[in-house]
Simulated scan of single mutants.
Amino acid sequence: MSGGGAGVSGAGCSYQKFVHFALEQTRLRTTLVPHPSQEKFKFIRANEENTVFNALSFSAPKIRLLRSLAIEQKNSVQVLDFAAFSEPEYDLPIFCANAFTSPARSIVVLDLNPLYDTTTNKDYREKYYKNLMPLAHKYSKLLPWGGKITSESLRFFSPVVIWTILEPTETNHHVLYSALTDYYKAWLEVMDEAAQEISKETIERNTEAQHRYLTWRAEKDPGYPLLKKLIGESLAKDLVTEFLFEGVNSLGTKSFLDYFPEYAQADGTVNKKRSMMGKSFETRPWDAHGEFIGYADEG
């Protein structure tokens, strides 16, 4: 993610640099083994000769799925979709790093997505995010809020989320790389400290919470149109459900509309509009303590 005036020429290399860093750091703390999904998608090929896919997935004692998809189009677009999901015996936040870089701009979402809503579940917020607020404060200054975003999009964001749109300069991407590595190290520390849950009821609750998240992300994945263009509709669907959000077909049986009935249309299909409801937030809707203040101006 360097190169300054060269636009995205170095972006793919640096996204790969982060992937290598993340895997190396993870291996220092736990044992990674290839996830079954890697076999099918590791050698995926795009329809366009100038496009390279790099798909990797692993599991570990506390990690149900650690996966990375990097897409590089020569002198054009670079994409990173990196995530880590814990085993249901742990209620860990989900590490999520999504970046889309073109010659004109980089669009980034970086977060430890909460398994449970941090506005209504204050204990969960205190448990995982209180100590991360200084990190969020540091990078929210360096990587400013990316502009209007709907409450729909905020549904699975945490108080430490970085949502930003950057000019793809060497300086900006140096800051972004630092944010990626610092946030991932923070997630690894949380993972290290996590104690295994033994309550069957709690494990089932964690499983459903993760499945709800996966169901939302699989349905709303903003990268799907690009995947469909590059590898065709059938393989794109498989990549979304069997790799990026693996578990959506195995962790539970509820459908998207079971979890989110407000999106049901009269014919029983899902309303595809991305901003069909809720307020838009033009500035960061959390304060320095992680309290949601997005609706404060409404009295």
Rank of each mutant, 00 (worst) to 15 (best):
P222S: 02
D192R: 05
E233I: 04
F157Q: 05
S234Q: 10
A46D: 14
E87S: 15
E208R: 10
L235R: 09
H289T: 15
A104K: 15
F41N: 03
P114K: 03
A296T: 13
F43R: 13
A136I: 14
A209F: 03
L166E: 10
K130H: 11
L180A: 00
P103T: 15
K185D: 03
K148I: 13
P93G: 10
N131W: 08
K74N: 08
M191E: 00
F157T: 11
S102W: 15
G252R: 06
Q16W: 01
G223N: 07
E152N: 12
E24N: 01
S280Y: 09
M277N: 13
L257S: 06
H174D: 01
K127N: 13
F260N: 08
R29N: 03
E242L: 12
A296Y: 13
K220D: 09
E193Q: 07
L230M: 14
D123K: 15
Q73D: 06
K62Q: 14
G4L: 14
S151K: 12
H20S: 06
K17Q: 00
L244A: 07
T215M: 08
S2R: 09
L80A: 10
G7E: 10
L65I: 10
L23A: 00
Q16R: 07
D297M: 11
D81P: 04
K62L: 09
Y116W: 05
V248F: 03
K200T: 04
F281R: 11
F245V: 04
M191C: 07
K74H: 08
Y295N: 11
G252N: 06
N75Y: 12
E167Q: 12
R212L: 07
D258F: 01
R205P: 04
D123N: 14
Y183G: 00
L154C: 05
F256L: 02
T150A: 08
L80F: 02
Y213S: 03
Y90I: 11
S199T: 10
C96R: 11
F43Q: 13
G5H: 08
V161L: 02
